[in-house]
Design a protein around this nucleic acid. Structure first.
Length: 223
DNA sequence: GCGACAG
DNA sequence: ATCTTGTCGC
């Protein structure tokens, strides 16, 4: 391993210890309360990566249940914080929060491409955004961060609970029959069951919920 | 110590 | 995330 890489590794190890404390404090601010109202405006957000450390944060707001896009905002910027498993929010949240500031509409619910409380310290990207914005958020990841047990039936709608030290943190959810499941957990201001409910209500045609699909598509376009 | 590890 | 070929199915 090169000199520079070793130096980078030790730098990360130092930062991680402080960021871990931040995550623990953040997780204590999470409120797993039921939604206060039926979401009429649902947003999806994602970050796409390009060369030279450039990344594009994209947010798409849709009207439910028509799934009509009423607003989109995005921004391309250079991201320097590295990807460290368990610390994704420190890489993506700053950019997404900045893009959120330019949103004219205030979503009733935000779907996030990443984990919610189904995280080693209950501090996934959806938690970070949800606590910061004080808007209900759902973590909707394509891969798990926590271990789970059991066999998930192949039918759409089937789910398995995911626990962290005995506490329910989220669910593995099949949004389409025969496709790989999503890992759903609350970010803030929503219950685990409602998180699953709204992921299934918005994933009507594909594996990913419509708002997330659109945000992902937008984030991939380099303009 | 070893393996696992969102995007 | 990105790289990377063929293949299965609507």
């Amino acid at each position: 391993m090169k000199e520079e890489e070793l130096r980078q590794k030790s730098f990360e190890a130092m930062m991680v210890e402080e960021l871990k404390e931040f995550q623990i404090k953040l997780s204590k601010k999470v409120k797993l309360f039921p939604l206060e109202r039926e979401p009429g405006l649902i947003a999806g957000c994602d970050v796409g990566y390009f060369e030279n450390g450039l990344a594009k944060g994209a947010i798409v707001v849709m009207r439910y249940p028509e799934f009509k896009i009423i607003e989109t905002v995005d921004s391309i910027e250079k991201i320097t914080f590295p990807y460290i498993p368990g610390y994704l929010s420190f890489r993506e949240a700053p950019l997404l929060l900045k893009v959120f500031q330019r949103l004219k509409n205030r979503p009733d619910l935000i779907l996030v491409d990443g984990q919610g409380i189904a995280h080693p310290r209950k501090a996934g990207l959806a938690v970070h955004l949800g606590v910061e914005l004080e808007i209900p958020t759902i973590g909707c990841a394509k891969k798990p961060l926590l271990k789970f047990e059991g066999e998930l039936p192949k039918e759409r709608g089937s789910k398995l609970p995911v626990y962290l030290t005995g506490e329910l943190s989220g669910y593995v959810v099949r949004t389409r029959t025969g496709v790989s499941p999503l890992f759903v957990s609350p970010g803030n201001l929503i219950t685990p069951e409602e998180a699953v409910e709204w992921v299934l209500k918005t994933a009507v045609k594909f594996r990913m919920p419509e708002p997330l699909r659109e945000a992902h598509r937008l984030s991939m376009i380099r303009t």
